[in-house]
């Protein structure tokens, strides 16, 4: 069986400075993979190459064998890729439910619709998704009124509306308290398992990474320097050297 996400030989440089110098890794369905690295290691670039924000100079990204290299965010969505943002991005003028409905309408290619009320579309499906992330009670509230942690969960529900096969989460727990972080990651992991989707996330909180990731990919200076289970990575000498012993886990 082909891998859910397969990245090979991925390259990108900016004005002659190589940010990503040929990276290979993969993620399986139902697996949570963390992409880590210190600032300037190239993980954000690498992440943006996969999510369509940037176009790679070389290499290949494939999803279940299908080449999705350099596809625009819009086309990636159609290919079954969903993403959440480091700084939460939601539609502030809509209710919580409407945010999810928006994604559902897009998935069902109904956004050119002129002859129905948007709020009546996919109400049941939207409610189910919100129930899944624990936002049922907030469904009718203005999205702008949500607490930060709830916004993160809303983003997840919006992402899931696409029934994605690959979920990309950029710094999912940034700006949250430790309890909230773990709660969110447990939620993310549960949907990852239940829905058999591949989860790739970047994260700077090593607690979160080593607690929740099935596999960890470590980047340094544009290269992949280690990958493996949390215990393998923890034991890796090069990782320890790069992080200068900051991995007290």
């Amino acid at each position: 069986m082909s891998k859910a996400l397969e990245v090979s030989g991925l390259k990108k440089s900016f004005g002659g400075v190589a940010a990503v110098r040929g990276i290979d890794f993969h993620a399986d369905a139902g697996e949570a993979v963390a992409l880590i690295g210190s600032n300037g290691a190239g993980k954000t670039t690498c992440f943006n190459l996969i999510n369509g924000q940037l176009t790679p100079d070389g290499g290949r990204v494939s999803l279940f064998g299908l080449d999705i290299t350099g596809r625009s965010p819009e086309l990636l969505f159609r290919s079954g890729v969903a993403r959440t943002f480091q700084i939460t991005a939601t539609f502030a003028s809509m209710s919580v439910r409407e945010n999810v409905q928006m994604a559902l309408m897009s998935r069902h290619r109904e956004v050119a619709g002129f002859f129905s009320l948007a709020t009546s579309r996919h109400t049941v499906a939207a409610n189910e998704l919100l129930a899944d992330v624990g936002l049922s009670e907030q469904a009718s509230r203005p999205c702008a009124a949500l607490a930060y942690g709830d916004l993160k969960r809303l983003e997840l529900a919006v992402a899931l509306a696409n029934e994605p096969r690959l979920l990309l989460m950029d710094e999912p727990t940034a700006g949250m308290s430790p309890e909230e972080r773990n709660a969110l990651m447990r939620l993310a992991l549960r949907v990852c398992r239940e829905r058999k989707l591949a989860l790739l996330f970047t994260e700077h909180d090593m607690d979160v990474v080593f607690t929740h990731a099935d596999r960890i990919i470590v980047m340094n200076r544009g290269r992949l320097i280690a990958q493996g289970s949390p215990s393998e990575v923890r034991a890796n000498e090069e990782v320890r050297a790069v992080y200068l012993g900051s991995l007290h886990v």
């Binding site: 965010p73 969505f77 993403r83 003028s93 928006m102 050119a112």
Partner: peptide, 19 residues
């Protein structure tokens, strides 16, 4: 309509709308 919602989505957050 869904079209109007999509316009507002694009206005509220273009990156999210694309995503």
């Amino acid at each position: 309509t869904p079209f109007g919602y999509a316009l507002r989505a694009a206005r509220d957050s273009t990156v999210k709308a694309l995503a």
